[in-house]
């Protein structure tokens, strides 16, 4: 199941890194350094709103899966359809085993996904 970083910060003013590397006249790099980037949630104490199974993460569907935002790390990750379905099932109260069965994936892959999410969305985690 796919789980990968989509945005470092939901509030960042995105710069395309490969294009930035190709910049030759310097102004793009200057613009990047001076741009205003908000991260209101970094290092926020652990007293924000929590949702049961997703541990405070917000998730929504996208054509090829879903996007997950963690208010405590401010990062946004993308998941594929299998992972999205599994996470939705877990949030609805299904056990890991049942969620795996319903999505026709292995229990081990569900546990791996949950492990990745735990690591990625731990406050202070490197993105």
């Amino acid at each position: 199941m796919k789980f990968q970083l989509f945005l470092n910060e939901i509030t960042q003013e995105m710069i395309d890194v490969p294009r930035l590397r190709r910049a030759i006249d310097g102004w793009k790099i200057t613009w990047t350094k001076e741009c205003c980037v908000l991260n209101f949630f970094r290092n926020r104490p652990d007293d924000t709103i929590r949702f049961p199974a997703l541990k405070g993460l917000l998730m929504r569907s996208e054509p090829n899966g879903g996007l997950i935002w963690s208010p405590s790390t401010n990062a946004v990750y993308m998941v594929d359809n299998d992972a999205y379905r599994v996470l939705r099932d877990l949030d609805s109260g299904y056990s890991e085993r049942d969620a795996a069965r319903r999505s026709k994936v292995t229990l081990r892959s569900v546990n791996t996904l949950l492990g990745k999410i735990d690591t990625a969305f731990k406050p202070g985690a490197r993105k």
Binding site: N8, E9, I15, D16, V17, V76
Partner: peptide
């Protein structure tokens, strides 16, 4: 303290293909 500095963000960033966040997200 949590002090967010403009310079901190320079090294971060993902490649979206868009030049900035405007209209992307």
């Amino acid at each position: 303290l949590a002090i967010n500095l403009p310079a901190d963000e320079c090294a971060s960033g993902c490649a979206t293909g868009a030049p900035c966040m405007a209209g992307f997200s």
